[in-house]
Amino acid sequence: MKQLSDYLGIRPCTLVYLLLIFFSLTTFLVGQMGFSGLGMSLLVLFLALIKGQLVGSYFMGLGSVRGLWRWPVFIWLFIPGILIGMAFTLSYQ
């Protein structure tokens, strides 16, 4: 992320901000265009988890922390992410 932001000539946090905006607009458009179904739900969930990880790593600063404290946000995203994904998958069966 840092190398890409260097290449673009912007701060890493600004690049993350732009990615968050882009993913949020994508999520919104999925809803507005009436897309539904398991595939779309899981795609939107996946985008949300990516956004969460970006916030945890780059905004909260956990990406530069060593050891256990690097993982709480990842674990927090992973467990509800699995549960939500499982519930939505079951709702289509």
Binding site: S24, T27, V30, A48, V55, G56, F59, L77, P80, I84
Partner: peptide, 22 residues
């Protein structure tokens, strides 16, 4: 700042879950 990012983080899951996923 960490607390405020947590508030943001929660909304990033809440928004698609409640408003978009169907």
């Amino acid at each position: 700042a960490s607390y405020w990012h947590m508030v943001d983080l929660v909304w990033l899951i809440l928004f698609p879950l409640v408003y978009v996923m169907r």
